[in-house]
Simulated scan of single mutants.
Amino acid sequence: MNETIRVDDLTFHIKRSERRKTIGLTVERDASLVAHLPKDADIGQVSALIRTKLVWVHQKLATQKDTGRETVFRRPEFVDGEGFYFLGKHYRLKLIDVDPAGPPTPTVRFDGDRLLFRREQVAVGEKRIAEHYTRAAHPYLNDTVNRWKRIVGVSPTKYVQVMDLGFRWASCSSKGTLNFHWRIMQLPPQVIDYVAVHELTHLKVPDHSPAFWAEVARILPTYPQHRRWLRERGGEL
């Protein structure tokens, strides 16, 4: 039987070698994951090391072609009427023409129930949206984490990081750094709270054991409905 190890929602195929002295991770061309281990490597130590490298793994997965990412996150079209979400509220895209000689105009701007977007930026639309959501995410998520960390009873590092995490909404390193996907700003505030509580709780319980979920339930009794919403609706955003 092939040996595997599962860390969160990722499965790594294990390859052991008598000549190998260190642990290494690779993301193959087909997006499969491999942990290269010394012959007698301890699985517990391997799992802990993998967890410190999860951001790197997800970033590598995000760059792979044909990994099915489009089934995880919807890829919007930058045409009039396309739907976008920000903090759970739905907006319709409106392309606008800007006079080059006129006053400076933001590429992305919310106005009522519309998201105004400069037409000449359509070719790099997703990049501009990611930049806008990332800027908004930093203060919002830091406030969210600061509010919940006292309730959870943990002390993460001072600032959160916002980046493209590939297939994940968020992650937590063993050093206490919280990482969030910029797309999290599309979620309703109460679902963002759940994601933050989930990651903060990992500073107490690193796995997804019954003890972990019991702690999440103690902190946020309504978490099942938010977790279900994320599974059922997250891919539509």
Rank of each mutant, 00 (worst) to 15 (best):
G125R: 04
E126N: 12
K127R: 12
R128K: 15
R128N: 06
R128H: 14
A130N: 05
A130L: 03
E131D: 12
H132N: 05
H132A: 14
A136T: 00
A137Y: 02
A137S: 00
A137L: 00
P139H: 01
P139Q: 00
Y140C: 06
L141S: 01
N142P: 02
N142E: 12
D143R: 15
D143Q: 13
D143I: 02
V145L: 02
R147L: 09
W148A: 10
W148V: 05
W148F: 14
K149C: 11
K149I: 06
I151R: 13
I151F: 05
V152E: 04
V152Q: 01
G153Y: 02
G153A: 00
V154C: 06
V154K: 09
S155Y: 12
P156T: 06
P156M: 05
T157W: 06
T157Q: 15
K158N: 14
K158H: 13
K158A: 14
V160G: 07
V160Q: 02
Q161L: 12
Q161H: 15
Q161K: 15
V162Y: 03
V162L: 09
M163E: 14
D164N: 15
D164H: 11
D164K: 11
G166R: 03
F167K: 11
F167D: 13
W169F: 02
W169V: 07
A170H: 04
S171Q: 08
C172K: 00
S173E: 12
S173N: 08
S174N: 13
K175W: 13
K175V: 14
G176Y: 11
T177Q: 14
L178P: 08
L178A: 03
L178N: 01
L178R: 02
F180G: 00
F180V: 02
F180W: 01
F180I: 01
H181I: 01
W182R: 07
I184V: 15
M185S: 04
Q186H: 03
L187C: 10
L187K: 11
P188E: 01
P188M: 08
P189G: 04
Q190P: 02
Q190F: 07
Q190A: 10
I192N: 11
Y194F: 10
A196F: 07
V197T: 01
H198T: 10
E199Y: 06
E199A: 03
L200F: 08
